[in-house]
C-alpha cells in the first residue's frame, strides 16, 4: 500500500522530508473520502454492536424494563443453560453438515461444468437460479417438498410402493431437511467461486500432466485441487459463518422443533429476546456468536492480505 510514496510527481531528486509532507497531505485528502462511511458505519453498525454488549451486562426485559443490576449474571446463566448448550450442538451440526454438503455439491458442479460438460452453457445459467431466491421462499418451497401429503417426491415413492421419508418428526430428519434446503440455496455461491478459481488454473500445467500420462482424475487431485486450496478455504469460512447465522430456514421450516432439536444458537437468541422478552439474555447469546465471528473474520482478513501481498 506504500507504492504511493512517489505519487508527488517531483521525482526522486526531492528531499525526503518534502516527499513525506506531500504524502501526508495526500493521505489527509484521501481520508476525507472515508469520513462519511466511518460516520454511518459507526452509527448503524458499531454503535448497535456496542449496545448489544452493554445490553448483555444488564437485566433489561422488554416489558419489565431495567431492574437496575449490572454484571456478568447473564453469562453465568449461559454456562449452566442446557438449552444454550443444546443450541450450540445444533448450530455446529447444521453448520458442519451444511458446509460439507455444499462444498461437495458446489465443487462437483463447478468441476463438472469446467471439465466434463463445458458446452452446457444453459446449464450454467440454470445452476445459478437458486442464488436469486430469497431464503424465506427457499424455506417455504422446500417445506412444501418435505410435507408428506403435498410433496411430489412422496407421491412418486408411494406410487412405486417405496417407503416415504418423514422429515420433521426426528432431529436427524429435521436437520437433514434444513441442510438440504440450505445446500440448494447456497451451492451456487460455492460453484461460482470455484469456477472462477478453476479459470485461474493454467491450462498448460494440466496439458503437461496429460502428456506425462496422468489420468484426468489424477491430474485433478494432484494439480487442480491443490491450486483450488485458497479458494476452497475462503468459501468454507464464508459459508461456515453464514450457516452460524441460520434464521429463515429454521423459522419457517421447523420453528426450532421437533422439541428443541433444531433450535440453533442464533434462533435461540431470537426466542429469548422476542418470544420470552428477555432481551438482555438474548444479547448475551449474541455476544457469544459475535466472538465466533471475530475470530473467523480475523482469519479471513489474514488469508486475504496474504493473497493480495
Amino acid at each position: 500500500m506504500q507504492h504511493h510514496a512517489t505519487a508527488t510527481g517531483l521525482g526522486p531528486a526531492t528531499s525526503l522530508s518534502g516527499t513525506a509532507t506531500l504524502r501526508r497531505q495526500k493521505q489527509r485528502e484521501y481520508l476525507r473520502f472515508i469520513y462519511p462511511t466511518i460516520f454511518l458505519v459507526g452509527l448503524f453498525s458499531f454503535l448497535p454492536l456496542v449496545g448489544m454488549l452493554a445490553l448483555s451486562l444488564t437485566d433489561y426485559h422488554l416489558i419489565n424494563g431495567w431492574g437496575g443490576t449490572w454484571g456478568l449474571q447473564n453469562f453465568a446463566r449461559l454456562v449452566l443453560d442446557a438449552r444454550f448448550l443444546n443450541s450450540i450442538y445444533v448450530m455446529l451440526a447444521l453448520s458442519i453438515g451444511g458446509v460439507a454438503v455444499q462444498l461437495l455439491v458446489g465443487t462437483a458442479i463447478a468441476v463438472g461444468l469446467d471439465q466434463i460438460v463445458p458446452r452446457w452453457k444453459i446449464a450454467r445459467g440454470f445452476f445459478t437460479i437458486p442464488f436469486a431466491v430469497p431464503h424465506v421462499a427457499v424455506a417455504l418451497v422446500w417445506l412444501s417438498l418435505f410435507t408428506p401429503t403435498l410433496s411430489p417426491i412422496n407421491a412418486a415413492l408411494d406410487a412405486v410402493g417405496l417407503p416415504q421419508p418423514t422429515w420433521f418428526s426426528s432431529q436427524t430428519g429435521a436437520i437433514s431437511a434444513i441442510v438440504i434446503a440450505d445446500t440448494w440455496a447456497n451451492f451456487p455461491f460455492v460453484m461460482l467461486l470455484i469456477l472462477a478459481a478453476l479459470q485461474g488454473v493454467p491450462r498448460d500445467l494440466k496439458e503437461a500432466a496429460a502428456i506425462d500420462g496422468a489420468s484426468q482424475l489424477r491430474t485433478f487431485f494432484v494439480i487442480t485441487l491443490p491450486l483450488l486450496k485458497p479458494a476452497l478455504l475462503l468459501v468454507t469460512l464464508f459459508r461456515f459463518i453464514e450457516t452460524l447465522k441460520h434464521f429463515p430456514l429454521i423459522y419457517v421450516m421447523t420453528k426450532g422443533g421437533p422439541g428443541r432439536s433444531t433450535q440453533a444458537t442464533n434462533y435461540y437468541a431470537y426466542v429469548q429476546s422476542f418470544e420470552n422478552s428477555n432481551v438482555s439474555y438474548g444479547a448475551a447469546i449474541s455476544v457469544t456468536l459475535f466472538i465466533f465471528a471475530g475470530f473467523a473474520s480475523f482469519w479471513v482478513a489474514r488469508i486475504n492480505s496474504r493473497i493480495n501481498s
Binding site: V41, P48, L49, K245, N266, S273, S286, V287, A293, N304
Partner: peptide, 14 residues
C-alpha cells in the same frame, strides 16, 4: 469482514 459476519441479531436488537 467482521460486520459482514456479525450475528444480525446483535445489530437488530439494539
Amino acid at each position: 469482514l467482521l460486520l459482514r459476519m456479525a450475528p444480525p441479531i446483535g445489530i437488530v436488537l439494539p
